Simulated scan of single mutants.
Amino acid sequence: MSRLARRATLALAALAAAAAAALPAAAQPFPSRTLTVIVPFAAGGPTDTVTRLVAESMGRELGQTIVVENAGGAGGTIGAQRVANAKPDGYTLLLHHIGMATTPTLYRRLAYDPVGGFETIGLVTEVPMTLVAKKDFPANTLAEAIAVIRRDQEKLNYANAGIGAASHLCGLLLMKAVDAPMTTVPFRGTGPAMQEVISGRIDLMCDQTTSTTEQIKSGAIKVFATTTPARLEALPEVPTSAEAGLPEFQVTVWHGLYAPKGTPAEITGRLSKALQVALADPKLVARFAELGTAPVAAAMATPEAHRKFWLADIAKWKPIIQGAGQYAD
Rank of each mutant, 00 (worst) to 15 (best):
N157C: 13
I146R: 03
I146G: 00
Y158D: 03
R150L: 10
L174P: 09
R188E: 12
P181Y: 00
A161D: 04
G189L: 03
M175Q: 15
E154H: 14
D152E: 14
G171C: 08
G189Q: 05
P181S: 00
I163N: 08
L156F: 07
A165D: 11
L173E: 09
A166L: 07
K176H: 13
M182N: 09
I146H: 04
A161V: 10
C170N: 06
A166Y: 08
T184N: 14
L174R: 05
H168Y: 15
L173F: 09
R188V: 09
K155V: 08
L174K: 02
F187W: 09
L169Q: 12
T183K: 14
S167M: 06
G162V: 08
M175V: 07
K176V: 07
D152H: 10
G171L: 04
Y158T: 01
E144D: 14
M175T: 11
P181I: 00
T190H: 14
R150C: 08
I163T: 15
I149Y: 02
L156R: 07
K155Q: 10
I149T: 01
E144T: 11
C170K: 02
A177I: 01
V178F: 05
Q153V: 02
A166F: 12
I149Q: 02
V148I: 09
G171R: 01
P181V: 00
L174M: 13
L174C: 12
F187M: 02
Y158V: 00
K176E: 15
T183P: 02
A147G: 12
M182F: 11
Y158K: 02
V185I: 14
G162C: 03
R150H: 12
I146N: 01
A145R: 00
F187V: 04
V148S: 01
T184M: 15
N157L: 11
Q153S: 15
P181M: 00
A166N: 14
F187H: 10
D179R: 11
V185G: 04
I146S: 00
A177D: 10
G162I: 11
M182S: 11
L172Y: 05
F187C: 01
D152C: 03
G189P: 06
T183M: 10
N160L: 12
D179Y: 07
Y158A: 03
P186V: 13
T183L: 09
A145T: 03
G171D: 06
N157M: 12
A159R: 06
D152R: 13
D179S: 13
K155W: 04
A165W: 13
A147M: 14
